[in-house]
Amino acid sequence: MSHLSAENVSVAFAGLKALSAVDLQITPGRISGLIGPNGAGKTTLVNVLTGFQTPSEGAVKLDGEALIGLKPHQVRRRGIARTFQGGRLFRDLPVVDNLEVTGVGLGMSRRAAIAEAEAMLDWIGIASLSSRIAGTLPYTDERRVAIGRALMGRPAYILLDEPAAGMSGPESKELSALIRRIANDLGCGVLLIEHNVGLVLGLCEHIVVLDSGAIIEEGPPASIRDSEKVRHAYMGTAANTDLPVLEVME
């Protein structure tokens, strides 16, 4: 079966272990979750999976083929897309050009890339933003454009790094519906990295919990919700205001 996996991945920065022997598997059409308190190593793992960070130990494999050593653009061309915390849009370019860049990066002509970008914006439901300069968009729209940019060329996998950060309840619900469509309609394997644990519990079939660079728990949402280890990880590191709502968001 097709899958993207991190196998026994460790990352150390100047002697400090950011990740310790982490295993993770993402499969097409399935939404997996990656949660953990601040500094748990979630983004570091995303960086490893997408070629931005070379692990000290372990391997990243796509359908059994090792990806370590590939540059980020080469990883993307193999169908592994990602978004970033904060969007990182090309702020001076119009929205459609933001998506077009990915098409061009994947080898399409500009004409073909524009066409797919327009179609993708329409599919996401933000076609009206096409000609807006990306830097002028409200926060929520930035996130949706970033997802559209990552979906160009129909990647087999998409890694969403805190896509709901700063979103209101209704906005998170809209995002939740979009993520479901990405998995169900496009058949894309999704890894959702989120602080909004309710969103993750409501969407994901399988959840991995990281703390201090190591996996402390993994399994279906029910087992994560009831896990003392997970509660302890969050309560031990954050102020009360940062505690996640361990309730399912539908």
């Binding site: 931005f52 540059k71 993307r76 990602r82 990182r88 860049v101 061009v104 990066g105 940019r149």
Partner: peptide, 15 residues
């Protein structure tokens, strides 16, 4: 131009 403005995002876009 995309790489000029956001090199990390451009690389993640396949550039």
């Amino acid at each position: 131009r995309a790489a000029r403005d956001e090199p990390t995002a451009a690389a993640a876009s396949g550039v």
